[in-house]
Design a binder for these strands. Sequence first.
DNA 1: TTGAAAGCGCTACCAA
DNA 2: TTGGTAGCGCTTTCAA
Lengths: 343, 343
Amino acid sequence: MSGIHLNDREPTMREVAALAGVSLKTVSRVINQEAGVSSELNERVQNAVRQLNYQPNTTASNLRRADQRTATIGLILDDVSNPFSSVLHRAIEDVASQHRTLVFAGSSGDDPKREEELILALAARRVDGLITVPASRASGELKQLQRLGKPVVFVDRLATIHTADSVTVDNRAGGSAAVRHLAAHGHQRIAFLGDIHDLWTAAERYLGYVEGLAMAGLRLDPSLVRQDVRNMETAEQAVLELLARENAPSALFTAQNLITIGAIHALQRMGRQHQMALIGFDDFLLADLLDPRVSVIAQDPARLGRLAAELLFARLGGDTRPTQQIVLPTRLIARGSGEIPIT
Amino acid sequence: MSGIHLNDREPTMREVAALAGVSLKTVSRVINQEAGVSSELNERVQNAVRQLNYQPNTTASNLRRADQRTATIGLILDDVSNPFSSVLHRAIEDVASQHRTLVFAGSSGDDPKREEELILALAARRVDGLITVPASRASGELKQLQRLGKPVVFVDRLATIHTADSVTVDNRAGGSAAVRHLAAHGHQRIAFLGDIHDLWTAAERYLGYVEGLAMAGLRLDPSLVRQDVRNMETAEQAVLELLARENAPSALFTAQNLITIGAIHALQRMGRQHQMALIGFDDFLLADLLDPRVSVIAQDPARLGRLAAELLFARLGGDTRPTQQIVLPTRLIARGSGEIPIT
DNA sequence: TTGAAAGCGCTACCAA
DNA sequence: TTGGTAGCGCTTTCAA
C-alpha cells in the first residue's frame, strides 16, 4: 500500500453550503455557533458537514477575523527534553488547552541565534503570544513582537525587556541558602558549578553563592568556581578535576539539574559521595532514592508554567494591568547529601 | 508600564510595495527569492522590508499557495513531560528545524477523547503531517487526515491503520528477554507490572512476558500480573501489595519507565531492593547510580524520533514508496538489579 | 523584467 | 432569519 494517499482536497465551506442548499454565510454561522440560525437550516448544515467530513480551516478564518487570533501560542525552552523544561511545558499546555489553544514548542539550545530564528518563525505564523525562557538578555525580535500587540511572558529566566510579564524564582536567595546551609555544617571550601554564565539564572545563582559565602564569613576562592559548565559530561569532568586537586573543596553547590547529576556521577566514580557534601539547584526524579539522598534547592516548575500561561491568557483576554514580575520562593530540601559534615 | 502594547498592526506586503515604489508582486518575488528581479528593485524592496520591519505572513501565503503547505507538523505524545517522550520530541524537533518546520506538541494523556480533540485541532490548523504515539488503536480522524493527503507516522506505538509508516521497537522480544534473563538467575515467581493494557506497547510487553515465561518453562501465575498501572504512585502501591502477600514474587518486570521508578520507591521503602530482582523496560537517567544499579531493556528514543521525522519529511518530499514499518531492537543492559539471584 | 487581476477559504458588514 | 458583497494578505496566472 502506498504511503501517500488520494489527495481528495479538503471540502470547503462553499461546498458544504452547496450541499445543504444554503448560503456560505449560513454555514459560517453554524460553524461558529453564532445565534440566529433556524434549527432546520442548522440541522441541514450539520448533516452536510458530517457527510463531507468538513474540517474548518482555522488558518483561513484567522486571516479575515477581526482579532486576528490563531488560537496558537509559541513556547521557547532551552531544551524540550530537559526534565525541568518538559514539566514547564506540560503545565503550559494544560492551561492552553483550556483556551482551545495549541502550543508550538521549540528548543533554543541556549543559542541566541537559534532563539532568534524561532521567534521569527513563530511571528511568521502569527502566534497570539509567546512564553519564553530567554537565552539572550535582549532581543529585538521580541520587542518587535510586543510592538505588534502580541503579549510576551518570560518564565524561569529574565531578559532586559521590562515591559513583559515574568514568572521566576528567587534564584539568588536559593543559592545563598544552599551555601549557608553547607557552611552551617562546617564547610569552608565550597565549590560552585554553574551553567553558561551569561544566562540569567546561572548569573543569579552565582550571585547567591557569593552572597552566601559573605554572610557565612567565608572567603571566595576563584579556583573553586567553575562557570560555563554546559552539560552532564562537562560537569562530571569538572568535579573530577576538583577532586583531584590538592586543597580540594569539601562541598559542592551545583547550580542546575544536569550539572548535579554529572557531579554525582563523578563522586560515585571516585567513591567520594559520602565524604563530599552536595546541594543541587532544581529537584529531580530519583533524588530521594540515591545514596546518599540528594539535598536540593527545589523549585516548582509546574507552578511556574501554570502561572506564566495564566498571565499570557489574561493578557489575551484583555488584561491591561501593569506588567507583573512574579517571583516564587525556592525551598531547601535536606535529604542527606547536603548535611554531610566536614571530615 | 502596561502589559499590552501599542497595536501597530503588522506591515503588509502592500505597504512594503508602496514604500519601495514597486508592485505587490515584485515584493512577493523578493520575499520568496524567485528569480527575475533586477538587483535594483531587489535592493529597494529589501530596504523597505527592513524599514517597516516587515514579517511575512506564512498563514496568508499558505492559503493561496498551490501545495498548501504550512511548514508545520503535529506531534501527539502521551505526555510531553515524560522523560521518554520528551527525548523523542527533541529528536523530532531537530529534524523538523532542518526543514524550517515548526512543531505543535500535545499530550494525549493516553486518553482517546483528548487524542481526537488534538487531531481535529491540528487538522484545523492544516499541519503538513502528523507524528503520533497513538493512544487508541483505531482513529477515524487519523484516516480522515490521511485521506486529505497528510502523511501520518506512528512512533513508539502502533495503531490498526496499516497505511501509515511506523517506527517502533520489538517490545515483545524485549519483554521476553527480560523474563528469560530473570529466569536464568533462578527466579520462578516473576511479577509483571504494566501500563494501561489497551496500549499497544503495554500489550506487546505483556505478550513478551508470557512468551518468556513459556520459553523458560515457567507457569504463568495471574496473581503476579498487575496491568493498568498508570503512574509512579500506583506502581509503588502495587509493589507494596505484592511484597506483603504470602508467596510473594522474587523478581519484578516493570514494563515502563515511571512504573520502574515507582517500584524502586516501594523496594527501598521496605528495604528489599537487594533481595528482589528487577528489570525495567526503558532506560532512565540515574539508573546507573542507584543502589543496586538498575538493569533495563533499553530503547533509543532519540533514534526512534529521528527516524519517524525522517520518514515524515520523506513523504512530504514526495516519497511514494510502500509504507514502512521500521522495528528497532532493544538492548538488555545488565547493571545489577536484574542479576540478583534467588535467595 | 514587471505588474494587474483573480482568487485561496473564510468572516465582517450591510441589505433584504 | 438569511444572504450578498467586500476583503483579510498573499500567490497564481497571464498580459504588458
